[in-house]
Design a binder for these strands. Structure first.
Lengths: 123, 123
DNA sequence: GCCGTAGTTCGTAAACTATGAACTATTGAA
DNA sequence: TTCAATAGTTCATAGTTTACGAACTACGGC
């Protein structure tokens, strides 16, 4: 198993961050990680946003987040502990992460509202 | 030629915006459009960020920006006038665009600085 | 009508993504 | 120690997306 790659903060790019967070599963994962103080394992996300993700796919998503510089992953025994690198990114790109997570919240709230209005059409 | 698609603001998604702006050519185009008060034609961008873009590719990039809801394009005679939809997006996702454009500026400034430090290694 | 300019669409090769199957690493028994 | 269980990773491959040249369409003069 090859060692995990964590770009140093100066190699983190806006394009990389935006691309990583342009996937619904990945923003959902990242939002949860960023909102939680303590580290979280990958398998915590086998179920997310009402759908289940195969673990190979999940592993790729974590790799994408890691290599974009958004999270840090550390092996702890048999599992992997993931934490967001918010603070570092905030320093390099002030306000970026907050704005994205906020927009994500706005959108989720909007969806929840419209789902409530017409609950018959499940999607 | 099929009509241009402009999603209504409530159909604009964060994922869509992030994906559209996760491409270096597209952010560059968008940054310029957003920074300018007046509408701009596509062919203005055949040269951007020191590289030339084939026009079919450029057309796809504009399509991507348009369908993500980031710009509005209108035919004016033989050419296409493009304007950014900043105001609408700002209303739906407050602070998002500003933060992204700002991060983009920070990164560009960083690159310019390091290029100046070692001007021999042209990339 | 025909020509030139500005963009779009099509076809296809290359790059990227999702996922099942097979694998690796670590821990905790037996 | 060996074995099994658990948590992730890697590989192969099918499917999707992207880039770009060639061919096309739309509009405005002449």
């Amino acid at each position: 198993m090859r060692p995990l790659i964590h770009p140093s903060i100066e190699h983190v790019t806006v394009e990389g961050i935006l691309h990583a967070l342009s996937d619904p599963v990945r923003v959902a994962i990242y939002a949860q990680l960023a909102g939680s103080a303590c580290a979280t394992t990958c398998s915590n996300f086998l179920q997310i946003s009402d759908r289940s993700i195969p673990k190979s796919t999940l592993s790729q998503h974590f790799k994408a987040l890691r290599e974009a510089g958004l999270i840090r992953s550390e092996r702890q025994g048999v599992e992997m502990l993931n934490t967001s690198r918010c603070a570092e990114i905030e320093q390099r790109f002030p306000g970026l992460i907050v704005a994205i997570l906020n927009a994500h919240r706005v959108q989720a709230a909007g969806k929840a509202r419209s789902a409530k209005r017409k609950p018959a059409i499940a999607r």
